[in-house]
């Protein structure tokens, strides 16, 4: 390989590897799960399953990109869904006419997400609390709100029009998948092409230098956590729509998986590095694996083992690549 080609290859190595992995996964599942994995039914079912997890992964990605972590996304998603469910089933605002419930529910969802996001953002930006620990606090707090309201029982009996949305399709593809695709593209454009996105990356790269460059760190931080909460809220609504009910503690295993997806997708846990497209492919990859596991009827324990192995393996691989990269630079 010539030097420049080598450089190009290593510059984008993460993405190159991801594409490779994706192809390998597709080929492998075509060989070992013929008819199962790529049957129309399974593809559709995967497209139905990706969004709820995908939105959470995008939320985790945002918090990782600013060099932090948001542990509160899943409890935020559930509590937002609970609030919405209370409006949708008429427990709250019983005076509201039936047809106004969905718009009102959406307004409540957005407001709740805004409040949660602003709360996280203020806590982290105004007190300089490390996001890991701050979001641990808000995770328990948000969950506590949901728990206090519901006592742990699931809130269901919601309007049919709302649950229909989770099952609706357009051009043979689930509407929620279109929604997810659109959100991912919008997010990619926002982060890579706009002034906000640039400030966001600079903030993630070096917060002190960003402050000394006249970037309003507080604003960037709050905006990030608002987006995180909104994405989590959408995930919560999708779950609400698909399973007809909202409940504290739903999807708690997603936390690990969102972090794995970000790591695989090339997001540096130290912030500032990584792109939406990598995470998108990692999400698809994850879904392929999940489906394969289901088809092979692996026990939840085996899945756990595999996720653990995958995370440590990917971290090791990244480490190895980084070292290789450094040694190449040194040669130069």
């Amino acid at each position: 390989m010539t030097n420049s080609l080598k450089k190009k290859f290593f510059n984008d190595i993460n993405f190159t590897i991801l594409i490779g992995l994706l192809i390998a996964a597709i080929v492998l599942s075509a060989i070992f799960l013929p008819g199962g994995m790529f049957s129309a039914a399974n593809i559709k079912s995967m497209a139905f399953q990706i969004p709820e997890f995908g939105f959470l992964a995008l939320a985790m990605m945002l918090s990782n990109l600013i060099g932090g972590i948001d542990l509160s996304i899943i409890s935020a998603a559930n509590t937002i869904a609970i609030f919405t469910a209370f409006v949708l089933n008429g427990t709250w605002l019983p005076a509201l006419p039936e047809e106004a419930r969905i718009p009102a529910g959406l307004v409540v969802a957005i407001l709740t997400a805004l409040i949660f996001g602003v709360f996280n953002g203020l806590l982290i930006s105004k007190t300089s609390a490390p996001s890991l620990i701050a979001s641990l606090g808000t995770m328990i707090l948000f969950q506590g709100i949901g728990m206090a309201l519901t006592g742990g029982v699931s809130i269901g009996n919601i309007a049919f029009e709302f649950t229909d949305f989770g099952k609706a399709e357009w051009a043979g593809i689930p509407l929620i998948f279109w929604l997810f695709l659109g959100a991912a593209i919008l997010l990619a454009l926002l982060l890579e092409k706009t002034a906000f996105g640039r400030k966001f990356y600079l903030y993630g790269e070096n917060k002190v230098a960003a402050r000394f460059s006249g970037i309003n760190n507080e604003k960037v931080c709050i905006a990030t956590f608002v987006m995180t909460a909104l994405l989590a809220g959408i995930a919560g609504l999708i779950v609400l729509s698909r399973v007809n009910s909202a409940k504290v503690g739903y999807g708690s295993s997603y936390l690990l998986q969102t972090i794995i997806v970000c790591v695989i997708g090339g997001i540096s846990p130290n912030g500032g590095k990584g792109r939406v497209r990598g995470v998108f492919i990692a999400i698809v990859l994850m879904q392929l694996m999940s489906s394969a596991f289901t088809m092979l009827s692996l026990s939840p324990y085996t899945k756990k083992l595999i996720w653990g192995v995958v995370l440590i393996l990917v971290l090791s691989l990244n480490h190895w690549i980084r070292n290789l990269n450094d040694s190449i630079k040194k040669e130069k």
Binding site: M139, I140, L141, Q143, G144, I145, M147, A148, T150, G152
Partner: peptide, 8 residues
């Protein structure tokens, strides 16, 4: 059910 709210 109020545990987490208080602890949080």
């Amino acid at each position: 059910s109020w545990n987490d709210l208080f602890i949080g």
